[in-house]
Design a protein around this nucleic acid. Structure first.
Lengths: 184, 184
DNA sequence: GATAATAGGGAATGATTGTTCCCAAATCAA
DNA sequence: TTGATTTGGGAACAATCATTCCCTATTATC
């Protein structure tokens, strides 16, 4: 079932919510219509489950990117680098289900909006934590405004997914190199 | 007809492409079904026309925001401030048709993707121009990497629209204050 | 003033949508 | 082996979709 959900994630990322029909889902998940409706209440429930699965996977990827750094600043740098990589190429073109949910459904579906906001806030809190770590270990100056900087970085990461979906190329090292000035 | 198109812009911004039915459009534009199809070839043509109209209006708003500054750095600051303002509150919740087009249609409709890319590149070129102005008038250091910085700023502006649509609050002065470090 | 041309309105249409219902195969219990 | 229960599959359904067609005012032309 998790593998079927992974396939649903791909379709929702690529086509968004409304352009994905139940037929698209059954084809991707290799399940019949009745089976999908036996596993999920309706299409929105499939989307929310796919959203949850996507968020969990991405959260893990981001944590492990952070673990590649040896201090707060380096951990943050690797998180940003990881975001650029995921916003590029084939995965970038496929898109992000959080951004898709925000743009396509935030105004129409309170459940999805709540999940999107929760996800954005989790990410922001994580980044803010890394900034504080850096300030504690001396790799980030104490005068950096933690909350404002982490919120701006959320804007950067979400924006990269928009730009990546539009297929503008993103150079990881150079883009992140510039973004790290925010920690000066 | 321009006023009808303005109303179409609002619907497309708020609901996106696929969730907007012809019925939604006729209600918003105060036109009957037949009239819409007499003025436009199909739904995609309405969207593209609305996109064009939206882009023209936003372009003008951005230019006039830039005009409020007295040097390159200040002009860029006002542009960023303007973006935060438009990403917030009722307009932020309504959303941006460029971001919506990128996220919802870039993978499905080559025409829309081309228009989205053109718009992103226009904005990026405009920002890059402001950076160069600032470097010429001495308000921005010469060592600032123009292309990388302007691309990152596009990510920031597009990301603010995603975050604003999700209804996370954005504090203009503080966010832009942090973002201006990119010009150090 | 009569007629042609245009613009706007809305019912009809066929395709597609999300959802439900029911059937067949397989698994388990006795 | 039976019978009961679950699991997966797909046809059927009503609703909604984008689009077309045709009718009625209104404007323009002679």
């Amino acid at each position: 079932m998790d593998t079927a959900l992974d396939r649903a994630v791909r379709v929702f990322c690529e086509r968004g919510y409304h352009a994905t029909s139940i037929g698209d889902l059954t084809a991707a998940m290799r399940l019949a219509t009745g089976s999908v409706y036996k596993a999920f209440r309706d299409k929105q429930a499939v989307f929310l489950a796919a959203f949850e699965r996507y968020a969990a996977v991405r959260r893990e990827q981001t944590r492990s990117a952070a673990a590649r750094g040896t201090n707060g600043r380096e951990r943050l740098r690797h998180v940003l680098l990881s975001y650029v990589e995921h916003s590029q190429g084939i995965e970038g073109r496929r898109g992000c289900i959080v951004v898709g949910g925000a743009v396509e459904l935030a105004a129409l579906d309170p459940d999805v909006r709540a999940r999107v906001n929760a996800q954005l806030e989790t990410n922001e809190t994580f980044i803010a934590g890394l900034i504080r770590e850096g300030q504690a270990d001396g790799s980030i100056p104490a005068h950096v405004a933690t909350d404002d900087t982490s919120r701006l970085m959320i804007c950067i990461t979400q924006g990269m997914r928009v730009v990546g979906k539009a297929r503008l190329p993103l150079d990881g090292e150079r883009l992140v190199g510039v973004a790290m000035k925010l920690l000066a």
